[in-house]
Computed example of a mutant assay.
Amino acid sequence: MQTKRIILAISGASGIQYSLDVAQGLANAGIEIHLILSTAARTVMQHEDINPESLLSLAHTDHDPNNIAAPPASGSWQHDGMIVCPCSMASLAAIANGLGTNLMHRAADTCLKEGRRLIIVPRETPLNAIHMENMLKANRAGATILPACPGFYHQPSTIPDLTRHLAGKILDQLEIPHTLYKRWGE
């Protein structure tokens, strides 16, 4: 059986810990991670005190975000889905409107045109009408919109409890087994 391959793209929105937890969950499940880390994401990582190596060490490949000739840009390159977490409103707008000017946006556009799973995790508040219209547009094109909204039914007591819960919800969308949070009724 071939190893699953997932693209994990990280834009310049706050909430990089979510993507770190997603990457850890993917790595724990034996998933081949293809990382696209934007320049803005690296800036946010500095502000959120997250070492880029903590993500890079989990990735099978770290793709240059400016290389639109990298494998994830092509529909002929096989993979099992893409996660954009966190997703800035600028990246959401580019994805929703088919603006493939960098690898992240082009790979997301390729997912939509090929009918592959694309999970977008917007991290912004409050939302204006343009943000909501772009989410609706991306959803209508085939993306799953999974906002970074923590749940509390699992009785979190720490910030990692909250971030792992959201990471688990993302992995659920791709049917990837995990133990990141306690499920309802368990």
Rank of each mutant, 00 (worst) to 15 (best):
V121W: 05
L146E: 05
R164H: 01
T125S: 12
P150T: 01
A93H: 11
S91D: 13
A90G: 10
D62T: 13
E124F: 01
L136K: 13
H154Q: 15
S57D: 06
L146Y: 01
L99M: 11
L136Y: 01
M82A: 14
P65L: 04
T125I: 03
P86V: 02
H60W: 08
I120E: 00
P122C: 14
P156F: 15
L112D: 03
G151V: 12
N97W: 10
G151Y: 06
P72M: 05
H154P: 03
D80P: 09
K113W: 00
A129G: 01
A129E: 02
C85F: 07
I145H: 02
S88E: 09
L166W: 01
K137S: 15
L99T: 08
L56K: 03
T144N: 06
H105I: 00
H105A: 15
N97I: 11
T144Y: 04
H165G: 14
P147A: 15
R117E: 12
E124L: 02
D109S: 13
P72W: 00
L56W: 00
I130K: 03
G75M: 05
I145P: 05
R140C: 04
N128Q: 07
S74L: 01
L136P: 00
C87F: 02
M132C: 13
V121Q: 06
P86F: 10
A69V: 13
A70M: 09
A94V: 00
A143L: 00
A90C: 03
T110D: 01
T163K: 04
L56Q: 05
G151N: 05
G115H: 13
D109T: 10
M135W: 00
R117N: 14
S157E: 13
D62F: 03
L127E: 09
T101R: 15
N128Y: 02
G98D: 12
C87Q: 06
R140Y: 00
I83A: 08
R164A: 12
G151R: 08
R117K: 15
M89Y: 05
L103Q: 06
S91G: 15
P86H: 09
H63K: 04
A138E: 02
A70R: 06
A69K: 02
G115W: 13
D80Q: 11
K113V: 01
Q155M: 14
F152N: 07
A70W: 09
E114I: 05
P156V: 12
W77Q: 11
S157Y: 10
P150E: 06
M89I: 12
S76R: 13
P156D: 13
L118W: 07
S76I: 05
H165Q: 14
V121R: 09
G151K: 09
V121P: 11
C87M: 12
L92N: 10
D64G: 10
C149H: 07
L146I: 04
S74Y: 01
M104S: 02
T163Q: 06
R123M: 14
T158K: 07
R164S: 09
H60F: 08
L127H: 12
H63E: 03
N134L: 06
N102Q: 02
A73E: 10
T61E: 10
A148C: 15
K113M: 07
V84D: 05
A129R: 00
D80K: 04
A108V: 11
L103C: 09
L103E: 07
R164Y: 00
G115P: 08
A138D: 08
I159P: 11
